[in-house]
Simulated assay, not measured.
Amino acid sequence: MERIVDAHIHLDHYSQEEIDLIMKELDQIHCSNLISVSFDLESCNKNLQLAKQFPKVKPAFGFHPEQEIPSYHEVAELLDWMSENRDEMVAVGEVGLPYYLRSENPQISIEPYIHLLDEFLKFAKKWDKPVVLHAVYDDAPIVCDLLEKHNIKDTHFHWFKGGSSTIERMMKNGYFISITPDVLYEEEIKQLVLKYPLDQMMVETDGPWRFEGKFSGKMTHPAMIHESVNMIAKLKNEDPSFVYKRLYENTKSFFRL
């Protein structure tokens, strides 16, 4: 068991009892940091408090796109808060486009979400912050257009799913992806690992999202990342120690930890 970083977790969405348990066990699972991404302003505030309480927690601030678009006032309030707390944040995130929300309700317009993401990307560019993205399938090329428009390189597509042409574009642009524990049982994720360079890869849980297979019925815990790393090593036909080191260094470097 070697060092890991959970590159994407919603720590603020766990119960206090679960948070205490996870934080207590980080040392024994050799997890040096958790990148805790935010859902909205309330979530940002909670992640900031968690980071102050637990130095291993590194917060990202943003607005998760799979929800109703915020008002102009709410966006302005969030961006102002993020500016005031920019020194405490390691990234802008989680931001992106609402693929699953629009799949359930095709009447929802994507344009306000594109505009909102554009505002977050301007913020990231202004303050030189990495970006953590929720952008899958048909939404990913739109996000790539915006990233290229703003010339943003430090980009992390978490739990990515999409077509070959988009994957090639992301690889060429130097964007990072992160792999979840479903790499143990999802063929789509296994194929992504085979295609994507290890030098542009991280590992995450996206907890408290729950997984299936051997993880069925279990609370999502950063310890699951060790299973992911070993599966990545197997798929890449690489020594696990080499893969551990590469993924760890990738994550520390990307988030400037």
Rank of each mutant, 00 (worst) to 15 (best):
G96C: 11
T180V: 04
V132Q: 04
N230D: 00
E168F: 05
Y196M: 10
L34T: 07
H13N: 03
L147G: 06
W159A: 13
E18R: 15
P65K: 13
G163R: 12
Y185A: 14
E88T: 07
P240N: 03
P70L: 06
I19Q: 06
H221Q: 01
S241Y: 00
F54I: 05
M23V: 08
P59A: 09
A135N: 03
T205G: 02
V57T: 10
T180C: 02
H115A: 01
Q28L: 13
F211C: 07
H8I: 06
K252W: 04
K52I: 12
S216T: 10
A223Q: 11
Q53C: 11
L121D: 10
L194M: 12
K195V: 04
C44I: 12
P112K: 05
S253W: 07
A233H: 01
H8F: 12
P55R: 12
N173F: 04
G207D: 04
C31T: 15
L97W: 08
H226P: 13
P130I: 12
V90I: 15
F39R: 11
F157A: 14
S228Q: 05
W159T: 04
L257Q: 10
L41E: 13
K58I: 15
K125V: 08
N230R: 03
P222I: 09
T220S: 14
G62R: 06
Y244F: 01
D145T: 15
K236R: 12
K190W: 00
N237H: 09
A140E: 06
M201R: 07
I179M: 06
I189G: 02
E88F: 13
E104Q: 05
D128P: 03
D80L: 14
T166Y: 12
V131M: 04
M171I: 15
F176Y: 15
S71C: 08
V243M: 00
D128G: 07
G162A: 10
R169H: 15
M231T: 04
D138L: 09
R86K: 13
R3T: 09
L146G: 14
S43W: 08
M202Q: 11
Y196F: 11
R86W: 05
V183E: 01
A233R: 02
F176D: 05
K126M: 14
K153P: 11
D40S: 08
H10C: 01
R102A: 08
A223Y: 10
E204P: 09
H150P: 06
E94N: 04
V37F: 07
H73L: 14
V229G: 08
